[in-house]
Write a protein that binds this DNA or RNA. Sequence first.
DNA 1: ATTTGTAAGTTCCCTTAGGGAACCTGGCGG
DNA 2: CCGCCAGGTTCCCTAAGGGAACTTACAAAT
Lengths: 184, 184
Amino acid sequence: MTRTSLSGVACSIARATDLFGDAWTALIMRDVLVGIRRFDELAEDIGLSRKTLAARLALLVEEGVLTRERYQVTPPREEYVATEKGREFYPVLLALMAWGDKWYAGPAGPPAQIRHDACGHLATPVVACDACRDPLTVADTTQLPGPGGRVGPGTQLLGPLIAARGDGVPAPDTAQNPVRSAPS
Amino acid sequence: MTRTSLSGVACSIARATDLFGDAWTALIMRDVLVGIRRFDELAEDIGLSRKTLAARLALLVEEGVLTRERYQVTPPREEYVATEKGREFYPVLLALMAWGDKWYAGPAGPPAQIRHDACGHLATPVVACDACRDPLTVADTTQLPGPGGRVGPGTQLLGPLIAARGDGVPAPDTAQNPVRSAPS
DNA sequence: ATTTGTAAGTTCCCTTAGGGAACCTGGCGG
DNA sequence: CCGCCAGGTTCCCTAAGGGAACTTACAAAT
């Protein structure tokens, strides 16, 4: 597949998807963060081939997202645990899950819920502005070039266009039913 | 690749990654939401083959995330615009971008910045609890089975383990048989 | 002292997604 | 009539990924 390594591209989304753009990788992180850390468990739970799992885990370790640790010396047994970098990926998974819950949950509701232990509520994760804590949407944000901005292919910074077209005037009503119960 | 379609899996992360697990798909969404909407522009900006772009766009349209619209009748020209479902994916991209910025930004800083027009600040997107608006982390959340929870492979709900092991604490014990709730 | 069992990978073969690049199809503008 | 976009298709070929068997290292059971 050539894996055109997007690492050279300036956009952080590209950087991140270069690692997590693989469907498996995100699922591995979910499992590891949720307590499934052993090779065989991961293979079975996620349902990917042992070969590919080994490759992904090696990549994640190389990237410093996971570490491989011996949790038992004899017989030697390894497990994969998330580094801080890996743990901080959890919120991204929560945001993804919230989106999936909203648009793909069946009539019964979402398959899992998140309890925010700090406040005790069942949480619906929202992506918010760190300054005012209000939710961020495509309509009320603008992308600006950043200090590290090598603007090149992969990073057109067309902020203003968003406000113009992104929301307010959705082309001839394209609204769809949020609940889509029959996946192909 | 067989694309083992994860649609059957209960976890919403799996559902979402089934669509966005492709590195290209997330980049397409980023571009479309940021104003790059035409076929050739997308192909060039993202750097993927026209063939694969056509396939991904068709998938995204089929999934109701984008619509294909004629923005000019003569000569006929098409563009892809995000539906509400697609626009609501933007926060997920922001969360991903924030993670990428934090862990991959070079010394110069991130390549792009987000201005939250509502409050005027440059925003660092955070994933927060909708109830208390505090950031959600792996350490202070617990995964619970949800109403639609067909717990199966792909959704072990081992919430308590997170608090125990997710942060700080190395490895309390070798929980051989974790809490694994019985499948219904 | 073999046999069995288990965790964690490897290796082999084979299918197929995806890259590169050329080709196709309307509908102009000159 | 000729070329030239935009927006795709088609063809060929590489290599990523699935399935399944094999390997290594140890321990407990027979």
